[in-house]
Write a protein that binds this DNA or RNA. Sequence first.
DNA 1: AAATTATATAGAAAAATATTCTTTTATTAT
DNA 2: ATAATAAAAGAATATTTTTCTATATAATTT
Lengths: 153, 153
Amino acid sequence: MELDPIDKALLNLLQQDSKQTNKALAYRLDMSVTAIFERIKKLENNGVLKKYVALVDHKVVDKNFSAFCHIKLAQHSRDFVVKFEKEVAKLPEVLECHHISGDYDYLLKVVVKDMEAFREFMVNKLTSIQHIGSTHSMFVINEVKNSTALELA
Amino acid sequence: MELDPIDKALLNLLQQDSKQTNKALAYRLDMSVTAIFERIKKLENNGVLKKYVALVDHKVVDKNFSAFCHIKLAQHSRDFVVKFEKEVAKLPEVLECHHISGDYDYLLKVVVKDMEAFREFMVNKLTSIQHIGSTHSMFVINEVKNSTALELA
DNA sequence: AAATTATATAGAAAAATATTCTTTTATTAT
DNA sequence: ATAATAAAAGAATATTTTTCTATATAATTT
């Protein structure tokens, strides 16, 4: 789908705050409410707008410990890879799992309550998945920036 | 703020789909629309619900290349650290910046159009920030999982 | 170039939802 | 038990979303 400058401006706004009313968006972009409505519907139908989510404060919900976890598989046969990816995606503590280039095969973002919960997670959940060769964890000391928005220019 | 099981169930639902109507949420949780409305307002006012955002398909908007980028600072004096963090947070290509434990100081998530755009970003934007010692980049081959939701049980 | 088709926009009307208000119910403390 | 507090339900109101109709704009065909 082709995105014109208005679509991009609209997406930028919705990525910052998806609860703005069409009226507010219409005012900002100097268009009618209907025009905004139709454009959003089109962006939704074409899969440009994938989903709308609420973001929760990690501290307040007592999940204030994040770690990035490198994982190397013991073997790389297709079946093992598929199995590993399926299992790891199921774990709610794993917010992200990326297959990456470099020394390790995967990079995971893990969010839990505290260091103790992380240890618990490693011992009982992650490393109990079959075919994991080795792991290497980095702990988040401070979150400098954490956004979901892509700048569309 | 104390979260009871209904609050947690509500947060889990809103983290998956924040566009559900209060009516739909009320039906799922077997409560009245008003009860849902009041709870959401309270969660917003107490900072539990931080913001509502639209998620955009990276492929469709032509930003289908992600990299994780390790950064080591040349010096760690307070001023340099503050300056670096401020500068890097400004870059729209940097969706995340975490101060982490381990061999490197920071881990960045960078999202751009393609490898060429990444090179451009590294040369002209990232490494032009003062006080960067060294960098090490890992490219995302495949995104196995990418979620923003914390499971509240 | 004129006519035609498709596409986007605007404004008004209708439908659905969010929000407020009042009453009721449940919970907690005295 | 009784009073005070907080949460919930239902009805009333205000907003918003969505649909509908009309108009303008752009692209396409003849």
